[in-house]
């Protein structure tokens, strides 16, 4: 069975989408990720699409849904590595992915997550 691997790195999950996904595979990833967030109590998810040559409305919706579900489950999702041609096409298609945080690459995405989680942590501790 085809499957996109989800790597656990401490508090974060890292997903690298390297293949041209068919729709069911995209839906399966969405399921697997929400289960993984819950199972590991993950605080952040990085979705690396640097090798994806195309994002259409279906994949765009999947990413937006993952981001929304993650938020409800207490994890911040960051989409990283989108190719410029993909970004230009997505906007023209009419998808600007509102509510989805993005970063240029995995490294920067990780920094953003760390900072965000550190900030949340201080908020929770009184005094």
């Amino acid at each position: 069975m085809e499957k996109i691997p989800i790597l656990r790195m401490g508090d974060f999950l890292l997903v690298t989408i390297q293949i041209d996904m068919h729709d069911q595979l995209a839906l399966k990833l969405q399921d697997d990720l929400s289960n993984a967030i819950q199972q590991h109590a993950s605080k952040g998810v990085l979705i690396d699409i640097s090798t994806l040559e195309m994002v259409d409305s279906f994949i765009g919706r999947m990413v937006a849904d993952i981001s929304g579900m993650g938020r409800i489950l207490g994890a911040q999702t960051i989409l990283v590595g989108m190719q410029p041609a993909v970004a230009i096409t997505l906007v023209e298609l009419g998808l600007s992915l509102p509510g989805v945080a993005t970063a240029l690459n995995v490294e920067r995405g990780m920094e953003i997550l760390r900072r965000k989680i550190a900030a949340d942590g201080t908020d929770e501790r009184p005094g």
């Binding site: 069911q24 040559e53 195309m54 410029p84 041609a85 997505l90």
Partner: peptide, 30 residues
């Protein structure tokens, strides 16, 4: 669903053969 993937790959190949720019390839494939 797999045919949708194959169609995308075919369009990518055809636009490359025609010498489309990367952005134009991506738009047509999408």
């Amino acid at each position: 669903e797999h045919d949708i993937v194959l169609a995308r790959q075919l369009v990518r190949k055809l636009t490359q053969e025609l010498g489309f720019s990367l952005v134009d390839q991506t738009k047509m494939v999408t």
